[in-house]
Design a binder for these strands. Structure first.
Lengths: 198, 198
DNA sequence: CAGTGAGGTCTACGGTCGTAGACATAGCGG
DNA sequence: CCGCTATGTCTACGACCGTAGACCTCACTG
C-alpha cells in the first residue's frame, strides 16, 4: 500500500534493520528446521538472508540466542490441534496425516524440534518453547485427569509420527495414504483426547 | 573361564585386535547414544576405548561405517515389545514406562535414533537398521490389516515418548510416575497392537 | 552539499572435525 | 635370541565452525 516500505524484489534489500532482522530470522527457521541446531551454520543462515555472518551475531547476539527466537517464531503461529473440542480427535489426526504427507514439506516446528534436540542446550530451549506455546494451550483444551501429561503424550505421538514418517522415512509409514493413516491415528489419539479413561 | 583371554582391568589392554575392536564399538554406541551422530567425535570414541582416533578409522574405515556397525549393535539385542502375544500391549507399555523412567539411563537404541536422525546420512543408516531388526520382527508379531504400518506407528509412539520424556524432558511427562504412564500408554497402544480395527 | 550515525562487510583468530600417511612397538614363530 | 608382522601411535592437513574488532558506506539531517 505505502510505497516507502517496498522491497526491491531483486536480491538487494534497502537498508532497513527491521526487514533485515526478519529475513535473518526466517532464514534461521528454515535452516534449523532442515538441518537442526548443530547442522545449520551461521554463515548459511546469513547467506540465505542476503547478509554476512557477522550481522547475524550483531542482531541476535549469538547462534544460541538466534535459535531461541527461531523456536519462538516456529512454534508461535501453529495450531497443533484443531479448536473444535468436539471433533478434536479427528481434526488432529487428519491434520497430522496431511502435514506429514510425502509431498508437503512446509516448515513444521516438530521437524525443528526433532532435528535440534540432540544438542542439550537446544533441547532446553525447545522445552521452554513448547511449554510457552503449545503446552499450556493444549492442556487447557483437554479436560479430565492428567490433562498435562495427556497433552504431552499427544505431542509425543505427533513428534514420533513426524520422525518415522518424514525424518527416518520408514517405508510402510512414509508410503501410507493419508486416509488410512488418519483413521489409525484417530483410534490411537482418542484415549488421549476424547474421554478421560476413568 | 580360560585365563588366556583375561583383561588387565587397569586401562591398558593387551594387543588383541578383536577385543580392541569391540571396545571401540561399545564406546561408539555409548557416544552416539549420548550425543548423536554429529555430536560424537571420533577422538572422543577412541579416547573412551583407550586408543587413538586413527585406530578407529583403521578398523572401521570411516565414522560413517562405524555408525553402521554401532546401529546394528544397538538395535540387535533389543526386544522393543514383549514376546507374549496375549499381554503384548501391557508388556510394551510397562516396559516403555520403566525404560524412560527419570533415573534409569541405559543405552537405548531409540535414544541413538532420536539424537542422530538430524543427519541425513545417519537417518538412512538408521532406517536400514530399523528395517533389518525391529521392523520385520514386530510386523510378524502383529496381525491384521496394515500390520507393517501399525508396527511402525508403534515405533513412532515409542520414539515420541523417549523424545519428550527424556530428551526434551517436558515436565509433566518427565515427572509422571511409571504406573500412571503405563496405564495411559496401554490405552493408546491397544488400537495398534491388540485387535485390528476392522 | 557536508557530516554523521546507523547498517553492513572484511579479515582473522582459535578451535574442532574427519582423515591420510609415515612411523613406532609389542609379541609370536623360527 | 632374532626378526617379522600385526597392532597401535604421531604428526599433520584442509575444511569448517562461532565469533570478535576494525573498517567501510549508504542515506538522511541540517
Amino acid at each position: 500500500m505505502s510505497e516507502d516500505t517496498q522491497e526491491p524484489g531483486d536480491g538487494s534489500r534497502r537498508r532497513d534493520a527491521g526487514a533485515t532482522r526478519e529475513a535473518i530470522l526466517l532464514s534461521a527457521v528454515e535452516a534449523f528446521t532442515r538441518a537442526g541446531y548443530d547442522g545449520a551454520g551461521v554463515r548459511e543462515v546469513a547467506g540465505n538472508a542476503g547478509v554476512t555472518a557477522m550481522l547475524v551475531n550483531r542482531y541476535f547476539g549469538s547462534k544460541e540466542h538466534l535459535f531461541v527466537e527461531a523456536v519462538d517464531r516456529s512454534f508461535a503461529p501453529r495450531t497443533v490441534v484443531g479448536d473444535d473440542p468436539d471433533a478434536l480427535t479427528e481434526q488432529t489426526a487428519i491434520s497430522l496425516a496431511a502435514r506429514t504427507a510425502p509431498d508437503a514439506d512446509d516448515l513444521d516446528p516438530f521437524l525443528l524440534m526433532l532435528r535440534s534436540a540432540a544438542n542439550p542446550r537446544a533441547a532446553e530451549i525447545i522445552r521452554a518453547g513448547v511449554g510457552r506455546h503449545v503446552g499450556r494451550h493444549l492442556t487447557d483444551l483437554l479436560s479430565g485427569p492428567d490433562a498435562a501429561a495427556r497433552a504431552e503424550l499427544l505431542l509425543s505421538l505427533i513428534a514420533g509420527v513426524w520422525l518415522m514418517r518424514k525424518v527416518v522415512a520408514t517405508p510402510a509409514l512414509a508410503g501410507m495414504d493419508q486416509d488410512s493413516l488418519a483413521r489409525l491415528l484417530t483410534d490411537v489419539m482418542r484415549p488421549l483426547i476424547d474421554p478421560p479413561p476413568a
